[in-house]
Design a protein around this nucleic acid. Structure first.
Length: 273
DNA sequence: TTTTGACCCTGTAAGC
DNA sequence: TGCTTACAGGGTCAAA
C-alpha cells in the first residue's frame, strides 16, 4: 500500500533502472479500466519519445515527456518492474517497450491505480493533482501550518492527516505511526489541537516519513521496488498492525479500532488528548 | 460547508 | 479440501 515513502522509493528505483536517455519504443495497453480509463491516444503520446525525468508529487509518479506528463498513481497494489522476456502477467495492464529492448510493466491486481497523460508543461492541470495540499517534507509544513489547516475542523486528527487536500502522502500506516510518535490519540478532534501539539504532529510526520524513505519504503503485501526488491520500514512499525500487542514504550496493550473507516492502532497510555 | 460512508477491486485469511 | 465471508485500503462521490 504505497504511501509517500514507497512512491519515492519507486521513483528513485526507476531513475536508477532507466538512467538517462531511455526512449520509449512502443506502448501496449492490455486493460484500460483502471481507477479511470486510460484515455484513447495515450500510447501515441509516449511512443518514440524520450523519458526526460520521473518526478513525484504526493503519491503520484510524474513521468516527464517532451509533450507532457504521464500521470501514474500506484493505488493499492500498483508496481513497476522490468519484464524483459517474461510473459505478461494477467495483471500487467500497461507495457512500455524501450528502444534498448527492455520492457517496463505496470502491474495492478486491484486496479485502484491510475495512468493518464497531461499535455503541456504543468502536470497540475490534472484534476487529481490540482487539489493536492502541501508536501510534508516541505519546510513550510510545520506546527503553525497545521494549526491553520486544522482550525475549525471537527474531524479526527488521523482523518485530517490523511486528507490529501491538507498534506499529501500520508496514508493509514504513517498516520498511525506519526500519531504514536506525537503521543496524540488518533480520535482527537483536529481543530482542538493547540500550537504545541500541532508542532509535535508535524515533527512526527516528517520524522517517520524521512526514516521510511531512508529504509526504502515499507513492504506490506503488495509493495515492491521497481527492481522487485522489498522495503524494510515495516520492521520499524511501532503500532501499525500490532493491535493487542504490547506497547513498545509503556508495556500496555495497544488498542485497535476504526477511525475514519480505517484500521487504527494506538496506545491508551502513551497517546492522550 | 463539512463530514460520513459506500463504492471500486482482488488477494488473502479465517471460519465453516 | 473446498467453499463462503470478511477484510485490507486510496481516492471519489453522493448523501446527510
Amino acid at each position: 500500500m504505497p504511501e509517500l515513502p514507497e512512491v519515492e522509493t519507486v521513483r528513485r528505483g526507476l531513475g536508477v533502472l532507466l538512467g538517462s536517455g531511455a526512449v520509449v519504443d512502443r506502448v501496449r495497453i492490455r486493460r484500460r479500466d483502471l481507477r479511470r480509463p486510460i484515455p484513447r491516444g495515450f500510447a501515441g503520446r509516449l511512443a518514440a519519445r524520450p523519458i526526460l525525468a520521473i518526478e513525484r508529487r504526493a503519491k503520484y509518479l510524474l513521468w516527464r515527456f517532451p509533450d507532457g506528463w504521464m500521470i501514474n498513481h500506484l493505488g493499492m497494489t500498483g508496481t513497476w518492474r522490468v519484464a524483459n522476456g517474461r510473459p505478461a502477467d494477467r495483471h500487467d495492464h500497461l507495457l512500455i517497450d524501450l528502444v534498448d529492448g527492455r520492457r517496463l510493466a505496470f502491474r495492478d491486481p486491484r486496479r485502484f491505480g491510475l495512468v493518464d497523460f497531461v499535455p503541456g508543461d504543468d502536470p497540475h492541470r490534472d484534476p487529481g493533482l490540482a487539489r493536492l495540499g502541501i508536501e510534508p517534507l516541505d519546510p513550510a509544513f510545520d506546527g503553525p501550518f497545521l494549526g491553520r489547516a486544522f482550525a475549525g475542523r471537527r474531524v479526527a486528527i488521523k482523518t485530517a492527516l490523511m486528507d490529501q487536500r491538507v498534506v499529501v502522502g500520508i496514508g493509514n500506516i504513517y498516520a498511525n505511526e506519526a500519531l504514536f510518535r506525537a503521543r496524540i490519540r488518533p480520535q482527537a478532534v483536529a481543530g482542538s489541537l493547540g500550537p504545541r501539539r500541532c508542532a509535535r504532529v508535524a515533527t512526527a510526520c516528517r520524522a517517520v516519513l524521512e526514516e521510511a524513505i531512508e529504509a526504502g519504503g515499507s513492504t506490506i503485501d503488495d509493495f515492491r521496488h521497481a527492481g522487485g526488491g522489498r522495503g524494510y520500514f515495516q520492521h520499524a512499525f511501532r503500532v501499525y498492525g500490532r493491535a493487542g500487542e504490547v506497547c513498545p514504550e509503556c508495556g500496555r496493550r495497544l488498542r485497535g479500532g476504526v477511525v475514519g473507516g480505517r484500521a487504527t492502532v494506538w496506545c491508551g497510555g502513551c497517546q492522550r488528548g
